[in-house]
């Protein structure tokens, strides 16, 4: 599997990464090298093997349904480039 420049640009756009045409070309070859490694991995027969989700055999920890966080709107918005009345302010997005 390999990707063309158009795919590289599309993925970049979906990830909100701005790239120049020149950079897209160099990224294309970098990505294709990585995909070459992935292709090698796919040669391994994993039929009937469950995907590994954790290196230790454990079940997911769950929290109790208790409110023990929040009420820190100032902290939450402290790094916002703009805020007012504890709202985040962002360039207008409207359908």
């Amino acid at each position: 599997m390999s990707v063309d420049t158009a795919t590289v640009k599309r993925v970049a756009k979906l990830s909100r990464i701005a790239i120049t045409d020149e950079r897209a070309e160099s990224m294309q070859s970098e990505l294709n090298t990585i995909l070459g490694f992935v292709e090698q991995l796919q040669e391994v027969n994993v039929e009937g093997v469950e995907p590994m989700t954790s290196v230790v055999d454990m079940v997911m920890r769950k929290r109790r349904d208790e409110i023990n966080d929040g009420n820190k709107a100032e902290d939450v918005t402290a790094n916002a480039p703009m805020s007012e009345d504890n709202f985040f302010m962002v360039p207008k997005v409207v359908e």
């Binding site: 703009m82 007012e84 709202f87 985040f88 302010m89 360039p91 207008k92 997005v93 409207v94």
Partner: peptide, 12 residues
């Protein structure tokens, strides 16, 4: 979207 002429307000 109706709180400001050029900005949207976000509440999480």
């Amino acid at each position: 979207h109706d709180q400001h002429p050029t900005m949207s307000f976000v509440d999480l």
